[in-house]
Design a protein around this nucleic acid. Structure first.
Lengths: 99, 99
DNA sequence: AAGGTATATCGAATTTTCCCGATATATCTA
DNA sequence: TAGATATATCGGGAAAATTCGATATACCTT
């Protein structure tokens, strides 16, 4: 994934919010409580919080994923997304030297 | 300047190149030699190297400037641009904590 | 003052992004 | 197997970004 495309992924308020919310899933997605947070947060929760349509959020999550900023796991009918901390760290280190 | 807008400024190959070229003006803009590099590199030099029109480069430089990534000085009929290392450092530190 | 050079701004055509609704796919449950 | 739920993908309209050529502005030289 190219640096420029990573910046494109980050060039959107909603996507930045999602990335930020995922730093503290327990706090930002209390509704999911019962299901636990081991795998991350499911799309529906993020969709409700973001106030965008399901299709938009699904697309945004896949943009973040292609940029290496989040990862996903399918568990039953749910897809859980979480931050890819290694990918984010790698990005920051890259920026530190290349920017 | 908002984080998202800074990412937008960086979401373009040409603007990223310009920012990168300005890390080593002597090497990347040898044509400017005679005039010296104390103030940075003038728009025309960047324009020729980027292979874009004058108006496009002028606009791109102002986008980078609004994002706090470069600064400019007018000297006679020339405007010299250089990296705003303080602004870039501030951005990196912000990212380190906020991203 | 007049003409030349460097940069900025304006207006527009094209491409890309944003975000939606509709539909497809996968899985779960009865 | 049929229906319900969760997510992904498709197609498109509106908005923003890209990039240009033309023009305006600023400054320098003679």
């Amino acid at each position: 994934m190219d640096q420029v495309d990573i910046f494109k992924a980050l060039s959107n308020r909603s996507r930045m919010q999602i990335l930020s919310w995922l730093k503290d899933p327990e706090f930002n997605f209390p509704e999911q409580g019962g299901a636990g947070f081991e795998h991350g947060v499911c799309v529906g929760q993020i969709q409700r919080k973001a106030g965008l349509t399901q299709s938009t959020v699904s697309e945004y999550l896949s943009i973040l994923q292609r940029a290496g900023l989040v990862s996903s796991v399918r568990v039953g009918q749910w897809t859980y997304y979480r931050r890819d901390e290694a990918g984010i760290k790698a990005l920051l280190e890259n920026l530190g030297t290349e920017l």
